[in-house]
Amino acid sequence: MTKGKAWITVLFLLFSLVFVGITHQGTMLGDYLFRTIGIPPWSEPATNHGLHYSAIFGIILLIFSGNLTIMHFKQRYKKYVGRTVILFFIIFYYLYPFLTERLYYLVNMNNEGIEVVDFLEKDSHCMYGTQEDIVQVQCTIRLINYGGQNETIKIRPIFREYGNPQGIWSFAEVQPQEITLLPRSNIRHHIYFESKPDARIAEFGADGNTDYFGVEFVKDGQKKVVFRE
């Protein structure tokens, strides 16, 4: 086994792991690559449901690259190669989100503004109810500031209803709240929002809870919407 071949198999294995790995944002590189080349990563692209094509391809890639790595290194290291590769899979799976988050902190260490703030779906959810012509919304939102200084921004949750453009969220306008995010922070915030008064709200009504929503950030006239699908 040449050193060049060994490096190729290891790099192929690392690419397979990164392709199918889940970042701290809950996203997968494979989804991004599929969309870049014009292939929908899901069989139902409008709702991101059904068969997850990029994940299936990534798992096949991972099995192939893992077997290739084991075959190459087994020629020299007879014992424990398979178990070592599997252990590496497990360690990488748990460390990858931590590493991607640290990378974002490093890249944005000296940056500021709306680009360094982010929203994570993990541990985020909202409860809402109708009070006359207003929708009251109580949210727990995990927010990140990758930058090295305080960021004071306005935020509001963005709700969507699949296949229902006439639903209440098409006209119920939730008002933003101002919040200050600490430097290099990843914190769950409990924030109360209300919609603008609207006679249609009293007619339609809205009660329930959801963990499927996005967040709109506004700072210094700039707007950024994070809605991971």
Rank of each mutant, 00 (worst) to 15 (best):
T100W: 03
I70T: 09
F19I: 05
P41W: 07
A55E: 01
I70G: 04
V81T: 13
E121Q: 15
V85P: 14
A172L: 12
E161M: 04
L182P: 01
Q175R: 13
L106P: 03
Y32L: 08
N150R: 08
E112W: 03
Q131T: 04
V174L: 14
I37K: 02
F98L: 14
M109Y: 14
G214F: 02
V85N: 08
T140S: 04
P157A: 06
F213A: 07
E216A: 09
V218W: 01
N67R: 06
L103I: 10
G129Y: 04
D123H: 12
I56N: 05
G50P: 12
W169R: 05
E115A: 11
E178Y: 06
V20A: 07
D123R: 13
Q131M: 07
D133V: 06
V226C: 04
I187A: 09
G163R: 08
H189T: 06
Q177T: 04
Y162E: 08
Q75P: 00
R142M: 14
L181E: 03
R102V: 01
I187F: 07
Q149S: 14
T47D: 13
V218C: 02
R188E: 15
F227I: 04
I90Q: 09
C139D: 00
L51Q: 07
L87A: 15
R35Y: 03
Q149F: 10
S16W: 06
T100A: 05
H52C: 03
L181Q: 03
T2Y: 10
L51C: 07
G30Q: 10
L106I: 13
C126L: 14
Q136P: 02
K224N: 05
L33P: 02
E194T: 13
R200Q: 06
G30R: 03
F119L: 06
I22K: 14
E173H: 07
F57S: 14
L62Q: 02
F92M: 09
I155Q: 08
N164T: 10
N145R: 13
R76E: 12
I141C: 09
Y105L: 10
L87C: 08
L103P: 01
H49G: 15
T130R: 00
T130G: 02
L11A: 06
D133P: 07
V215T: 09
S185M: 05
G205V: 04
F98H: 14
F159C: 08
F204V: 02
V116R: 09
Q166E: 15
D207E: 12
V18T: 09
V107Y: 03
S185L: 03
I191S: 12
P157S: 06
G147V: 01
S54A: 15
L95I: 06
G208S: 12
F119W: 11
G82F: 12
G205S: 05
D198N: 08
Q166V: 09
E121D: 15
F98W: 14
I22Q: 15
M28K: 13
L95G: 08
